[in-house]
């Protein structure tokens, strides 16, 4: 079962942190369809946040079709965010980064290049 971590100083709304962490776990395959999310009581007993905040986060995840609340039973994962296998792409990226370094490009420049390409295509 997923365990939430709340950072009160992050400036990100608490319910958004719960949504983001659930999606992150879905992407990494740590949560799979059929898995149960902790109940609001379990979350607040561990984190001392407002139970209404947990319910709000779960409603948001439900709206996005990622989880499903079952009356009297709890909230369950209903969709996967796992990505297709990226093994080959990752090898190519490793080669590319090695070449960039060998050619003397500094890290900040590579990051800027990468971000510009991401922004252009996503």
């Amino acid at each position: 079962m997923i365990e939430f971590r709340i950072d009160r100083r992050s400036g990100v709304a608490t319910y958004q942190q719960l949504v983001d962490q659930t999606k992150h776990a879905l992407r990494l395959g740590l949560l799979r369809p059929g898995d149960q999310l902790p109940t609001a009581k379990q979350v607040v007993a561990a984190t001392a946040i407002n139970p209404n905040t947990v319910l709000k986060a779960y409603r948001e995840l439900e709206r996005e079709g990622l989880v499903e609340g079952k009356r009297g039973m709890g909230t369950f994962v209903s969709a996967s965010l796992a990505q297709p296998d990226a093994g080959e792409l990752r090898e190519q990226l490793t080669d590319w980064v090695r070449r960039a370094r060998a050619d003397g490009l500094d890290r900040e420049y590579v990051e800027a290049l990468f971000k510009a390409e991401l922004d252009a295509h996503y």
């Binding site: 609001a40 009581k41 607040v44 001392a48 946040i49 139970p51 947990v54």
Partner: peptide
Amino acid sequence: EDVMRTLMAEVAD
């Protein structure tokens, strides 16, 4: 932290 966790859990119920 203990007091707030207890209180919030009871509110959830």
